[in-house]
């Protein structure tokens, strides 16, 4: 296409975005917008799928049948979220299996939070309360994302997430109000999960390379620091109410701003985990690779069976 022509298409595109008209799969979109979305949506999908692993670790050891059923339902939802998102990414012309191979070959990332281990049952509470809580902060504004299929997938996801957060908070609350040993278990889990949860919102705005462009395209509606602040403001009073202490000595309500001030995040740890040196990075990716390889024969067999059935049906008719 001629350069002038492309320029005017880009102008029309940005104008639509500015007027809050959704971009749909077959509409014109700049290559960079498409690439950004493929990267973001596939990595979001990978996060949902990898996110099942730390919770799967506790399914067989859930303290009772109710907890087990709830945990299973939650994990099944996460699988569903991954599938909604792979479906959205395919509307952009990306191939689902290619994006999955990108994950397996280390070319794609997923949320760093899932590289932390789940050591006690209290971690199931923290994951639901804090990790799903932070995910909700990120995902609610994505329901208004400029790309239609992503926005619609997020609407479905957000409807399901609030159960995830509540079941987690219920676990934490019960432990916090239980025996001294149980309360200690909850506090210890909070100590481990608080900072990684804050890191889920990504680098500070000053160090975030993609934010400005993503906001212009209305893929993103709030900056990382804005979302992080919203999360802190929402979560601190919840911790106080159930008698747990946020592990941050600099945490203090600021009367002037109406927000909580909080301490500095350990960015070295953040980048270490992002770069693959977190406690569970290797384990997570190899679990996903193994699942794909072990399931290969099933996919092959199902294809052969489908072909055979189609042939048989043809003969009958």
């Amino acid at each position: 296409m001629e350069k002038n022509n492309l320029d005017s298409l880009d102008t029309i595109f940005q104008d639509k975005v500015d007027r809050e008209i959704k971009i749909e799969p077959k509409d014109y979109m700049p290559d960079a917008y498409r690439k950004t979305l493929i990267r973001q949506i596939s990595q979001h999908a990978h996060s949902e799928i990898v996110g099942q692993l730390p919770e799967a670790n506790w399914v067989t050891r859930a303290p009772n049948l109710r907890r087990k059923a709830v945990l299973l339902a939650k994990i099944q939802d996460e699988a569903g979220h991954g599938l909604y998102l792979y479906s959205a990414v395919e509307t952009l012309g990306a191939d689902r299996e290619d994006t999955i191979d990108d994950l397996h070959e280390g070319r794609a990332k997923y949320s760093s939070i899932f590289n932390y281990p789940t050591l006690t049952w209290a971690d199931m509470g923290m994951v639901g309360w804090l990790v799903d809580g932070a995910a909700i902060m990120n995902q609610v504004p994505l329901c208004r994302c400029s790309y239609g299929p992503y926005a619609r997938a997020m609407v479905r996801v957000c409807k399901e997430e609030s159960f995830h957060q509540r079941q987690g908070f219920e676990i934490v609350t019960q432990l916090a109000q239980g025996t001294p040993v149980q309360k200690e278990m909850a506090q210890e889990a909070l100590n481990r999960w608080w900072w990684p949860a804050l890191m889920m919102f990504g680098p500070n705005d000053a160090d975030s390379t993609h934010t400005a462009q993503s906001m212009k395209w209305k893929i993103k509606r709030h900056t990382n620091d804005e979302l992080r602040q919203m999360f802190v403001d929402a979560t601190v009073p919840q911790a106080e109410l159930i008698g747990l202490k946020i592990p941050d000595n600099d945490l203090k309500f600021n009367e002037e701003t109406g927000h909580y001030d909080f301490g500095e995040i350990d960015w070295d740890e953040f980048w270490q985990v992002v770069k693959g040196y977190g406690p569970c990075n290797t384990e997570r990716v190899s679990a996903r690779k193994k699942a794909k390889e072990d399931g290969l024969w099933v996919r092959e067999a199902a294809n052969v069976y489908a072909e055979k059935r189609a042939r048989r049906n043809k003969k009958v008719s």
């Binding site: 569903g80 479906s87 399901e160 199902a302 489908a306």
Partner: peptide, 23 residues
Amino acid sequence: VGSLRAADEEMAINNARDVYTRR
């Protein structure tokens, strides 16, 4: 509501039930 991958129409219906109608 969206799309999914399945080997044949029967599996597509079953997967659709699990992916899109859990509630």
